[in-house]
Amino acid sequence: MELKIAYRMLLFPIQMFYHIVRASLLSLLPSSKKDLSKEVVLITGGGRGIGSHLAKEFAKQGAKKVILWGRTEKCLKKTAEEISLSGSDCCYFVCDVANRDEVYKQAKVVREKVGDVTILVNNAAVVHGKGLMDSDDDALLKTQHINTLGQFWTTKAFLPRMLELQHGHVVCINSILSQSPIPGAIDYCTSKASSLAFMESLTLGLLDCPGVSCTTVLPFHTNTEMFRGMRVRFPQLFPPLKPEVVAQKTVDAVRTNKAFLYLPWTMRVLVILKSFMPQVALEEIHRFSGSYTCMNTFKGRT
Rank of each mutant, 00 (worst) to 15 (best):
A193E: 04
G45A: 10
P210N: 12
K108D: 15
V41E: 05
E200W: 13
L263W: 06
Y188M: 01
I50R: 08
A281N: 00
R161H: 15
K258Q: 09
A55G: 14
Y262A: 10
K156C: 11
T250G: 00
K108W: 06
I14K: 03
V110T: 12
A125S: 14
L196H: 13
T79Q: 09
S32V: 10
P240N: 04
V212S: 08
C214R: 02
G300M: 03
K242R: 12
Y18P: 02
K78I: 06
H128W: 05
L206S: 10
E81D: 13
E82P: 04
E112C: 04
A259M: 08
P30M: 06
L263V: 01
T155N: 13
M133D: 08
G51S: 15
T143S: 08
K156D: 05
E225T: 05
G62I: 09
V94P: 01
E284A: 14
H286I: 04
L85H: 08
Y188K: 00
G51A: 07
F12M: 14
R255F: 09
L132Y: 13
V271A: 05
I176D: 06
F17P: 00
A193S: 14
P243E: 00
S178A: 15
L270M: 13
D137G: 00
Y292I: 02
E82A: 04
L282G: 11
T293G: 01
A139Q: 15
T154E: 08
D136I: 07
H128T: 05
L204Q: 09
S24P: 01
L237T: 04
D138W: 12
T266I: 15
V271C: 00
K77S: 15
L29Y: 09
K258G: 03
F17Y: 07
R268T: 14
N123C: 02
Q15V: 11
V245K: 15
L270A: 14
K78T: 13
V21H: 02
G70I: 07
Q279S: 09
R22L: 13
L263T: 00
L218V: 02
V251L: 04
H19N: 11
R48N: 13
C90E: 01
P160I: 06
T118L: 01
K274N: 09
P160E: 13
R100G: 02
E284P: 01
A59G: 03
V41N: 01
K130G: 02
D101M: 10
P243C: 11
H53E: 14
F276I: 11
L149A: 09
K33A: 15
M162G: 07
F260R: 12
S191N: 05
E57S: 02
K60G: 07
M9W: 11
V103I: 09
M295N: 04
V212W: 10
E225I: 01
G129T: 06
K33F: 14
C95D: 10
L132K: 07
I119C: 03
I182N: 10
T154N: 12
I173V: 07
T215F: 08
H167I: 03
E284L: 14
P160K: 05
A63S: 07
Q15M: 15
R228S: 12
M267E: 14
A193F: 00
Y104T: 07
R231L: 08
R268W: 04
F152P: 01
I176N: 02
S178I: 05
V121T: 12
Q151Y: 12
V246A: 02
C214G: 08
V126A: 06
G150K: 10
K274R: 11
C95I: 08
L120C: 03
